[in-house]
Design a binder for these strands. Structure first.
Lengths: 219, 219
DNA sequence: ACCTGAACACCGTTCAAGT
DNA sequence: ACCTGAACACCGTTCAAGT
């Protein structure tokens, strides 16, 4: 018999369920019944539940919109990192899947290629480019993680909730943890996008400093 | 009746199961039966399965060994971040739980307090300290995530497996993604600890640059 | 307060049979 | 090749009853 479905269709369907009902609503059975078939049919397209979840992650990564390239490597790098960050945090319910699933498909190559491409226009050498790429990628996913489940995060995925979260932490920290307590106050007037931008800016300042130190040396 | 168990005991038991059998081996029933009781008994100590998982995460964070403080803020900050990174990646099977669960208990306060304390001995102002703290924390968790499920990660949580992963990526990227392909080669002679150290070093270079720019200005 | 067996409403997946 | 119903071996959790 001819194939009734495509993996794209199944991935899209699974993503819709996660967006509407959360991760707990996702199951082989729920996806199958939404497609009007029995659960076992999905096993013809996907390697079990794990494969289903990978399909959802790939749908997210494929949805990342990269900005047009600009000449200055530093500006370009920042823009690509920010776009990736925005794409990954765009679907809050999917974040646990993004954090825990390997993204090996070609869909994750486009952002990586752009990031490394930008770094290659700097004066950093290959080892430094690798370290910078890895650090920036870690900063992106780590920022998504922090907003979702970090120490100052709130109980919901919103800036207002995170402000409340910070307030609560400040209370808990009290006098036993004076530094946390003081910083919790400062962090109440921050928002996720500004925080990310500043953190990325600091890493970039480090790259530029490394680049300058590199100048003239040719290894 | 008096309490037969403690949450510590339950958390330790759950952690043992995860270490031995992986995450899929963890269930209310498996923990209960290992404690010699029925599953419903756990509900007297823990808020369902979610609460059980939080207990495991807290056990990990509580197990982070912080180094003795040294005067230089930069050295101190690096040491604390590295210790936290090592503690979080020490139990590979638990990493998905660490990445997806809020760590709000006091156990996560100790590393954070030390990090902010070190930053407070620099010449950075409060806003910059907040950004630096968040960026470093994101770099730590993001590095753990990258090693576990990142683009160059292997199928197992070992350096050798990651080298194979990089080789495979290089092959897949081929000529369509020349930058990735080139970097995949370089990344084959890297290991997780060195990568993390270099990334953190780059962020710190950024902090120092920011600190210098800050000099003299008093806001 | 803390315990706990029975039962319910789910899961993912194996198996076997269909076309 | 692709489909799929029945069945199996699990889940987490509600309920009700015990001390």
């Amino acid at each position: 018999m001819r194939a009734r479905f495509s993996t794209d269709e199944i991935g899209r369907c699974a993503l819709e369920i996660v967006e509407r009902d959360g991760l707990s609503g996702l199951s082989m059975r729920s996806v199958a019944s939404r497609l009007g078939t029995g659960p076992m049919t999905l096993y013809n397209y996907v390697e079990g539940r794990e494969g289903l979840e990978e399909l959802v992650v790939e749908a997210i990564i494929a949805g990342v919109v990269l900005p047009a390239q600009v000449p200055d490597w530093c500006t370009d790098f920042t823009a690509v990192c920010t776009a990736l960050w925005e794409g990954l945090r765009a679907h809050p319910n999917v974040i646990p899947l993004i954090l825990t699933h390997r993204s090996v498909s070609a869909s994750s190559f486009a952002p990586a290629e752009r990031m490394i491409g930008a770094l290659s226009r700097s004066r950093l050498n290959q080892d430094q480019i690798l370290a910078a790429f890895r650090a920036a990628l870690a900063l992106v996913t780590g920022s998504v993680q922090a907003e979702f489940a970090g120490i100052f995060a709130g109980t919901a995925f919103h800036d207002e909730a995170n402000v409340r979260g910070a307030a609560r932490v400040g209370e808990m920290a009290g006098t036993a943890y004076p530094f946390i307590s003081a910083l919790a106050e400062v962090s109440q007037k921050s928002n996720a996008a500004d925080d990310f931008e500043r953190g990325l800016g600091m890493l970039l300042a480090g790259l530029v400093a490394t680049e300058s130190a590199q100048e003239g040396r040719n290894d």
